[in-house]
Design a protein around this nucleic acid. Sequence first.
DNA 1: ATTAAATTTGACCAATTGGTCAGGTTTTGA
DNA 2: TCAAAACCTGACCAATTGGTCAAATTTAAT
Lengths: 226, 226
Amino acid sequence: MSDALAKGSELKAPEVKEEASPGHIRVRNRALILTAAEEVFATQGYRGATTAAIAKKAGLPKANVHYYFGTKEALYAAVLEDILGLWLGELDRIVETSDPATALAGYIRAKVHLSRERPLASKVYANEMIRGARHTRDFLKTELRNLVKEKAKVLEAWAAAGKMEPVDPVHLFSVIWAATQHYADFEVQVGSLLGRRQLAAKDYDEAAETIVRLVLRGCGLKYDSR
Amino acid sequence: MSDALAKGSELKAPEVKEEASPGHIRVRNRALILTAAEEVFATQGYRGATTAAIAKKAGLPKANVHYYFGTKEALYAAVLEDILGLWLGELDRIVETSDPATALAGYIRAKVHLSRERPLASKVYANEMIRGARHTRDFLKTELRNLVKEKAKVLEAWAAAGKMEPVDPVHLFSVIWAATQHYADFEVQVGSLLGRRQLAAKDYDEAAETIVRLVLRGCGLKYDSR
DNA sequence: ATTAAATTTGACCAATTGGTCAGGTTTTGA
DNA sequence: TCAAAACCTGACCAATTGGTCAAATTTAAT
């Protein structure tokens, strides 16, 4: 056995008691199923996803999936719930005290990063929108709308302070979301155009810079193209 | 009967001989089926679309759908074929002799217009990309890639002539496509954020202007925000 | 150790789905 | 007018699907 390997093995420090804490099975299996479901829903669509395929990908019998989530629809709702949490976080940096260019650029880069790290989540969400947001209507009309209204005030304040030009906030966010999520949802198209099977880190970076450039300049902010 | 209505009826000028030309049944029914299929594929996804639903929407028995298109997959391919034709046309205005700002703005406005007029086509295409472009890979890697390469040369020429700043063409087109098609694919989301059930003509116009503004300024071109 | 609760799962079911087909009707062209 | 081609469609089928369930096993808590 090589030194490195031996060292690695010895280092798995905590030496947890093999299994632990009540409910850990529930937690582990729900996570397995949710991960598998995200992939199957993303690549096959809601209707195309079968509970059998999800179960197989999770390494569990189909009846087990129904044991934990009841129906396919409830499982789908749970997957969406996870994704919405992921989406909502990054907007925090858009606050009045931030510098507009820094905040917007940071948000865009973070969103592109998410498209690279969690493309399946983006695809599930896109699918949900395309099909009319049957399971997400309330979220859109309340939570998301309020969040955007809040951020709209920040943009207005920036504009009033002469830090940027006024821009319609809904259209600005729409363009940012569309452009950034495009690199997850239409990954295969962008890859084809760039002549790659898979997008590389560099491609995501260049995408982010392009989007940042258009948005900042569009808002009357400085951006130096290198 | 109102004047307007009567006038409208009388005006249906050509008064074609009730039926006509051999093969007209084939043409008419294929069109009925393709239109119905576009809607069902758009709103239900590939797997979610049933030939029965398509037949019902077309007002024909299911067996008739199979009579004209054979399999569901062949019908889907035919729908995609139609859509790709629609997509490819508008790029014509991006030629070296055009003024960059005029050409790009015109293209963006035309694409937004298409999102409003043919949202279902956009949704079918988005679905196809999300699922990995199983039926469109070849098109992407050959036709679309070559088209973009061609347009890339135009952008380079414009930049070399000092008419605009250099921009990565693939990322520029990706952002334009993402932003414009967003108003078809994520229509329900934009509507929720704007507090409308349906987007109005004004909303599409404002969307187009926002995108034009970001893109032109991003390319170092003038755009006056009114 | 004991028992209640949680978990597991093969077998099963009713409904749906893409697709077929035979026998009929209508359209077309000579 | 008439036969061939095109078109139509109700009835049917094998496969798949989401979901159920009862009996067995494992885990948790006393």
